Amino acid sequence: MITDRPIATDRLTVNHAEIEGRTGEPVVLVHGNVSSGVFWHPTMTGLPDRYRPLAPDLRGFGGTEPLPVDATRGLRDHSEDLLSYLQALGLGPVHLVGWSMGGGVALQLLRDHPELVRSLTLVNPVSPYGFGGTHGVDGRLNSPDGAGSGAGGAAPEFVRLLREGESGADSPFAPRSVLDSAYVSKPLAEPDRYVAAMLTTRTGDDHYPGDTRPSDTWPGSAPGARGVLNSMAPTHFRIDDLELVDPKPPILWIRGSADVIVSDTSLFDLAHLGALGAVPGWPGEATCPAQPMVSQTRAALAHYAAAGGRVREVVIEDAGHSVHLEQPKQFLAALLETLDGA
């Protein structure tokens, strides 16, 4: 049985899910943006008894203490929360699994504390160069102020409905609609618990999406200093030296082939939306190209492999952004191969 309980750390109180009585090698599962540890429950029950799955909620999500997010630190508020959580539980090196934004959190923990990571699994992860506002496989900024990334990219109607706790699907911007159309490639059979998890997201300048700054560069806004989306802006979050990690645990990169969120043609990237005509005023490919998110991750992991790290890329067909929910058998098979071989 999966149970939730609070864990007091030296930074904040973390709510986490675990399976009662389970021991074994710890596998720490880090969720993505606008979600919670609930998205990991099927993976937790699918792992064999020799592993101890743990799914903490990040700050501002689920039942964890909603401390403000200092976006100028990139994802380090979250990665250092995760570090304090591991220390509070007295865990040594762990198998770390990060989905979407959680992949960025896991990468940051790996970069800062590689000795704590037995293996790393990245599930449809955010690019090592953040989300939005860059071009090229080396993550060059489209604009020095990061225009096109950060909180300005959030749809105001989605934020409003999230804040109001809308659980229906009358609007295409409702969380349930976004779950069906973006988180997965096909609607889930039992989505209610995931919609409820999305609705635990704290909203506002300190949380989701964060604050914005005006910009003279299209689309007219640049990332602010607070909140979740700004913490993934390329002006704040960049891991461009992954090859320097020592020691180098094995990395599994697993993703769905139909992901529309983290993609080289992301429907959540303002530059790509501008090219499609969905956001007016786009200045063109020469000055504001779309972010090649998948290609950027592949290039960073190639540098890691060239420096002696083990990397495996697995692409799952008929799956989108939530491959662990959409194709759980294939996901678990790939994950277990990495865990068992670490």
Rank of each mutant, 00 (worst) to 15 (best):
residue 121 T to H: 06
residue 76 R to Y: 00
residue 169 A to D: 14
residue 180 D to Q: 15
residue 137 V to N: 07
residue 294 V to E: 03
residue 77 D to A: 08
residue 202 R to V: 13
residue 32 G to N: 09
residue 138 D to W: 00
residue 57 D to N: 14
residue 134 T to A: 02
residue 232 M to G: 01
residue 43 T to I: 11
residue 7 I to V: 15
residue 64 T to P: 04
residue 140 R to K: 12
residue 165 G to W: 02
residue 239 I to Y: 00
residue 79 S to R: 12
residue 146 G to K: 14
residue 107 L to I: 14
residue 329 K to Q: 14
residue 124 N to I: 05
residue 48 P to T: 09
residue 22 R to Q: 13
residue 292 P to L: 03
residue 91 L to I: 05
residue 33 N to C: 12
residue 207 H to S: 05
residue 225 A to F: 00
residue 301 L to E: 11
residue 171 S to M: 01
residue 248 K to E: 05
residue 239 I to W: 01
residue 164 E to V: 01
residue 199 L to T: 11
residue 155 A to L: 07
residue 194 Y to I: 08
residue 263 S to G: 06
residue 313 E to V: 12
residue 42 P to E: 05
residue 195 V to C: 04
residue 267 L to H: 14
residue 283 P to D: 03
residue 65 E to F: 00
residue 269 D to N: 13
residue 126 V to I: 15
residue 330 Q to Y: 00
residue 135 H to P: 00
residue 342 A to D: 12
residue 300 A to C: 04
residue 131 F to V: 04
residue 339 L to G: 09
residue 155 A to K: 08
residue 223 P to A: 01
residue 14 V to Y: 10
residue 151 A to F: 02
residue 60 G to K: 10
residue 175 P to E: 10
residue 20 E to P: 00
residue 310 R to T: 15
residue 24 G to I: 11
residue 179 L to M: 14
residue 213 R to L: 15
residue 113 H to R: 15
residue 150 G to A: 05
residue 185 S to P: 02
residue 70 D to V: 12
residue 79 S to W: 05
residue 138 D to S: 05
residue 145 D to Q: 12
residue 331 F to K: 11
residue 111 R to N: 13
residue 285 E to C: 03
residue 323 V to A: 12
residue 62 G to Q: 08
residue 304 Y to N: 07
residue 262 V to P: 04
residue 124 N to L: 00
residue 98 G to N: 13
residue 140 R to T: 15
residue 315 V to N: 03
residue 211 D to H: 09
residue 314 V to T: 14
residue 335 L to A: 09
residue 229 L to S: 03
residue 157 E to A: 05
residue 159 V to D: 04
residue 155 A to Y: 04
residue 101 M to A: 09
residue 87 Q to Y: 01
residue 188 L to M: 10
residue 137 V to P: 02
residue 280 P to E: 10
residue 124 N to F: 00
residue 24 G to C: 04
residue 299 A to D: 08
residue 246 D to Q: 14
residue 98 G to E: 10
residue 1 M to Y: 01
residue 147 A to E: 06
residue 70 D to N: 14
residue 52 R to P: 08
